[in-house]
């Protein structure tokens, strides 16, 4: 009965969604409102005013910087949330029989995989940094680079054979919380620099050089902060 109800509900929802999408203005055509109104303005002025060849980055860091600020805050908050919640459940409340204690169990890893991971790590890290730093010119940016960097760090942690260590080793604990908060903090700094340089909060400086520097700083903050958050999430889940 419940299954049937669920099916009906999903079917109805699907029908509604399809109805909406069918009635939307045709995507991809040049006269749909999506392309004629605000986006057109971005395309026309984005390169000059936005200060980035990559329009996506221009929108993210410039036109809608406050959105991006909110997004990095969400990511940071997610980590805080997991840290706050996992520590309280405690290791004794686990249930089930198939649990693997990742702290003490050594994952049987093929030496080949382990070797390849360690071999690839510097290249992945370089790529991640590249994506972050060139985000304003090429596809990519802080978010993408940060996730790649985070994935690399997690891979290392998984396959380096050092799974029994706690997370105090890579970074000094005093620094760790600063790096995790890097995303929101660079935007806080942007708020101030914007005020100093151009008189508006969340605005980039007008001078091209400084604008590029600030953008790179933002991308690095988003990226490294994001990577730190992801690693933190992984560790919190593994240990909590």
């Amino acid at each position: 009965m419940r299954k049937f109800l669920a099916l009906v509900l999903i079917a109805a929802l699907g029908a509604v969604l399809i109805a909406a999408v069918v009635n939307l203005p045709e995507p991809g055509t040049t006269d749909s409102p999506v392309h004629t109104h605000v986006s057109a303005g971005y395309i026309k002025g984005g390169h000059e005013a936005g200060g980035a060849d990559n329009l996506v980055t221009a929108v993210l860091l410039n036109y809608r910087a406050i959105d991006t600020f909110g997004e990095v805050t969400v990511i940071f908050t997610a980590l805080i949330a997991v840290l706050a919640a996992t520590s309280l459940a405690g290791p004794t409340e686990r249930s089930g029989t198939q649990n693997i204690d990742l702290k003490t169990t050594r994952v049987p890893v093929s030496p080949v995989v382990s070797f390849v991971v360690r071999l690839m790590a510097p290249f992945i890290a370089t790529f991640a940094l590249f994506v972050m730093l060139k985000g304003h010119e090429l596809p990519g940016g802080g978010f993408q680079g940060g996730v790649v960097l985070g994935a690399m760090l997690i891979l290392l942690a998984l396959f380096s054979g050092r799974t029994d260590k706690t997370d105090d080793e890579e970074l000094p604990p005093g620094l760790r919380n600063w790096i995790r908060a890097a995303g929101p903090l660079v935007f806080g700094a942007l708020g101030l620099t914007g005020l100093v340089f151009s008189g508006w909060l969340f605005s980039l400086p007008d001078h091209p050089f400084w604008r590029e520097m600030v953008m790179i700083g933002l991308e690095l903050g988003i990226g490294i902060g994001g990577a730190a958050v992801l690693v933190g999430l992984f560790r919190a889940l593994r240990e909590g």
């Binding site: 604990p173 908060a181 995303g183 929101p184 903090l185 806080g188 909060l201």
Partner: peptide
């Protein structure tokens, strides 16, 4: 004049600073 952005910025940045500042 900037208060509208500051009411968002101040608490969030303040909140983000707290775990880093007060670990000890």
């Amino acid at each position: 004049a900037h208060g509208l952005a500051l009411v968002v910025l101040v608490p969030i940045v303040g909140g983000a600073l707290i775990p880093a500042l007060f670990r000890r």
